[in-house]
Each structure stands twice: as C-alpha cells, then as structure tokens.
Design a protein around this nucleic acid. Sequence first.
DNA 1: GTCTATATGTTGATAGAC
DNA 2: GTCTATCAACATATAGAC
Lengths: 238, 238
Amino acid sequence: MPPRPSAAVTLETAQPPGDTKARLLDAVVQIFAERGFHATSMRAVTQLAGTSVSSANYHFGSKEELLRAALILRAAPLNDLRLKALALVEAGPSEGKVRVRAILEAFVRPLLEARPELKDEGFPGRKLAARLYVDPPDVVKAIQQEVFGPVTVRFREALENAIVDVDPENFDLGLQLSLGVVVHSISGRFIWPDEEEDPSGSKREQAIESIVAFAASGLLALVEEKNSETGNPGASAQ
Amino acid sequence: MPPRPSAAVTLETAQPPGDTKARLLDAVVQIFAERGFHATSMRAVTQLAGTSVSSANYHFGSKEELLRAALILRAAPLNDLRLKALALVEAGPSEGKVRVRAILEAFVRPLLEARPELKDEGFPGRKLAARLYVDPPDVVKAIQQEVFGPVTVRFREALENAIVDVDPENFDLGLQLSLGVVVHSISGRFIWPDEEEDPSGSKREQAIESIVAFAASGLLALVEEKNSETGNPGASAQ
DNA sequence: GTCTATATGTTGATAGAC
DNA sequence: GTCTATCAACATATAGAC
C-alpha cells in the first residue's frame, strides 16, 4: 500500500494539527442530530472526525460532556439571536395577534434562517436542536433544559403578556403544540430547499413565514376557542 | 432465603402459564415508548415481563420483530377506528373548514381518546405510536411506514379533496406541521389528566378538541395565507 | 495531543438441558 | 416453552507509549 498522500509534508505527530476538538464538535453535531444520543457511538463520532476515542475523551472527558459542549457552542449564539429579536418586538408598538405572531417569529426565525454566526450554513445544527426535544434519555433532557430552558421561559412570559385573558390550561397546551410545530418542521420529513436550488433563499423565507403563521394561528385558535365558550369571542388578543 | 410464595402450588415449569407472549408485548410497548429503540434493551423488556431474553427470542425471533409485533397489535385497531371515522366524515354533508376540521378530528380522536378496544386504557400505547415518528433508527422508520403509512395516505387524500385550490408546497408543509402537533401533544411535556383526576373525561375531551382546533387552524392559515398572496382571500376552503 | 492497547461492562442472539 | 450458560460484538472509558 502507498503511504497517505500528505504524509511526507511534516514529521509531526501523524494526525493534523490542533483542530481535533473542532472536528469532533462538528462530527458529534452531525451524527447525534441524525441518530440521537443512544444510537450514536463514540466510535462513529471519532471515525467521522478522523481521530480516536481516547482523543475525544482527552478533550471532553465523556460522551455526555462531548454532547454538552457541542450544544453550548451551537445554542449560545442561537439564544442570543432569539433574545435580541424578542427585545425588538417588545420595544415595538405591536399589539394583539400581530404581536403574538411577531414573538413566535422571534423564536422561530433564528433557528430556521441560514446564519453564518451559528457556524452552520447547512442543516445539522438545527437538527441537533430539534432532536433535543424528541430524544428520550434523561441525559439529553437535562442538557436541553440547561441550554434552552431560560430562553424558553422568557418567551413564555412574553407571550403571556401579549395575550390578555389567558386561560392557563389552554395556554400551556398551546405553547407545547407550537413547540411541536417548530420541532417537526425540522425533524420531520419536510424537505428544506438547499442553497443551490434556492439561491435567493425565497423558498426558505416562505417556509419560515408559513411555520410562524401555522403556530400563531393555532395558538390563537386555542385562546379564542376558550373565550368563545365564555361568550367573549374575538377579544382574546388585542 | 424463603422460597417464592407460590412455588408450592404446582410442579410445572417454574414461570406462569402461556401468557408470556402477551406479557412481553405489554412490556415492550411500555419500555420502548419511554426510551426509544436503541435505548431499550431486551434485558429490560424481559425483566419487566418476568421472563428471559431467550424466551423473547423464542417467541419473536429478534428485537426488531418483537417491536413490530407489538406495533401491529396496537396499530391495527387504531387504523380501523381512524378509517371508520374518516368514512363517516366523507359520507356526511360537511364542507370547507368544517370538513377539514372533521377530518383532522377523525385522525386525532382515535389516538387520544381512551379506548378499551386498543387494550390500552392508559398512556403507553399512545406514546409508542408517537415515538415512532420521532425515533431516528431506520428500523423504526420502516415499521412506522409499514404500520401507519397507508392510513396516512388516505387522510392526505381526504384533506386534499376538502381543500380547494391546494398549493402543493404549503399543503405538504401544513400536513407535516399538523402531524407535529399531534405527536407533540403526546410525546411532549404536556400533562394529560389521569382517570382519577378527570373521571368524566371532560378535561381530556377539551384537550382533544383544542388539539384539533390548533391543527385545523394552522393548516387553514397556511392555505389562506397563500391564497391571500394571490389576491383570493378566504376562498381557500369552501 | 494523539495514538495503540486494553479494561470492564452490556448488548443481541444462540446452544442445549429440562 | 422456559430456563441457564455462553458467545461474539459492541459500548464507554482508561493506561501508557511517544
């Protein structure tokens, strides 16, 4: 067998320089997003990253910590974008249904829009975020809470303020279903247009708007339904 | 240590009579629904069923076949209920939005309602169905397609007929998001009232109606949004 | 920092006694 | 039919050379 093509360049330690950590993070995002926590083995991750299991454990200590590191890296900028968008909406003059929709958009858009800041032009990072919400292991649930919990609470409060006369039970159900909409827009079988098929991003843009419209309409339908039962139709969001 | 309490009753083969198969099916539904395919081990299942791994493999041949058997057992009656409910809606005189909502209800209600026919008064069977849609392994995806695919296609056609002037792209997205709503109403963190807290089932009933309302409103919002762009507002479902 | 080699446990599946 | 005993393959994690 011939030696590896680039083997003659340097006499150093075999594998590429010091970007092993970065390659591991990329690999874990990719594989974990596809297969979930339990179905993802350290072997698979380290093979994709072109390194060894022990190298991964040297850098991160354990499988769980590797996942947590990848998530914090991906989620921190996403959280920032969401909170900034929310602040803009709350500082603005919008009211009622328009505001509800704007808040949901502030939650959805940073996740679905192509964002170089997230160091993820493509899809794996989004899928990872979505998988957190459907993967059963306690480990994953804990990380999800840790990474996304506070921001989710912020959005919950914002929506609670934007909808007057909130019925707690329907509101909680509505929030969960809205989250289901967002998660399934990613983890389900809907095909997102890729960049070459949709260079202007207009198809993606339309999909984002549709998703926001779906969630907002559903959420408001719940509140309206409740209020129409109490004989107060249409006055739920003002 | 004292002998097992019932050990003196018979001289037969140690474990209970011939309902091992049934106990295994119950156990796999319960555990798989909670943890997903890869995180569920044969040992965990067989321990819960009070038998051994080899016994399970004797009856079902493999882990995958055990899951498939459990699913077919649970899904067949669910499919029947859904198709019957759909037939009733299609034979009826409803039109437009009302019919769209009725079709969605025919899909949702048999899943969420307490149904003795499904041999599952409680929750595990529903959770299992929901998990099929979020569990990543190819095995699971294949079983889901096999078990639920045909009925899903039937409902898709029914909805396509009920909504005039369908925009294919938004329609597909809308269907997927609707499915996300249903799946998340089960697999998410919404707490369903249990039977003792809600003996009349009225809370559960209200939740089902809310879920249908959410999905119908979201789906129609997508179609209406599209049509209002083309200058034809409100004429999408008639 | 990265590797090879290994430790230690668990997995799904099978063999064979009863 | 059900069990105990066992298999080979896989899992995560660590030890130690370089």
